[in-house]
């Protein structure tokens, strides 16, 4: 397996996640699509680490940081979703317009 295969898979996965972020109404579904995009980035980092600098592990360390930041993002995002659901009785991202004008 060459680097290009992993990069192509990562590009496809990123585009699928992008499509989900744009077209979903449900806020939790948007967060799940974001997780797909994070995973695409991580595949990129680990694949570059494997094929370009196999003995230095820098890509893997960055992947760890990305995973941790994604976990923090999911925590805060889902807390906001639950708060929105409590106040609006809905988690439709199109109807939550408090900070739009």
């Amino acid at each position: 397996m060459q680097l290009i295969h992993y990069l192509s898979l990562s590009a496809i996965l990123f585009s699928i996640g992008f499509y989900g972020v744009i077209t979903r109404r449900n806020a939790i579904a948007i967060l799940m699509s974001l997780e797909l995009m994070f995973n695409a980035v991580n595949i990129n980092l680990v694949a570059f680490n494997r094929f370009v600098t196999p003995t230095e592990f820098i890509g893997q360390i960055f992947a760890i940081f990305v995973i941790v930041v994604a976990a923090a993002e999911a925590t805060v995002g889902l807390a906001i979703v639950i708060l929105i659901h409590r106040n609006w009785r809905s988690i439709d991202a199109d109807r939550v317009n408090l900070m739009k004008w």
């Binding site: 939790i28 799940m32 999911a74 979703v81 639950i82 659901h85 809905s90 988690i91």
Partner: peptide, 16 residues
């Protein structure tokens, strides 16, 4: 993260 997402779905499931 998956458990967290499933928890959030359960907490909002009545409307989701």
């Amino acid at each position: 993260v998956s458990i967290l997402i499933i928890f959030a779905i359960m907490l909002t499931a009545r409307l989701a």
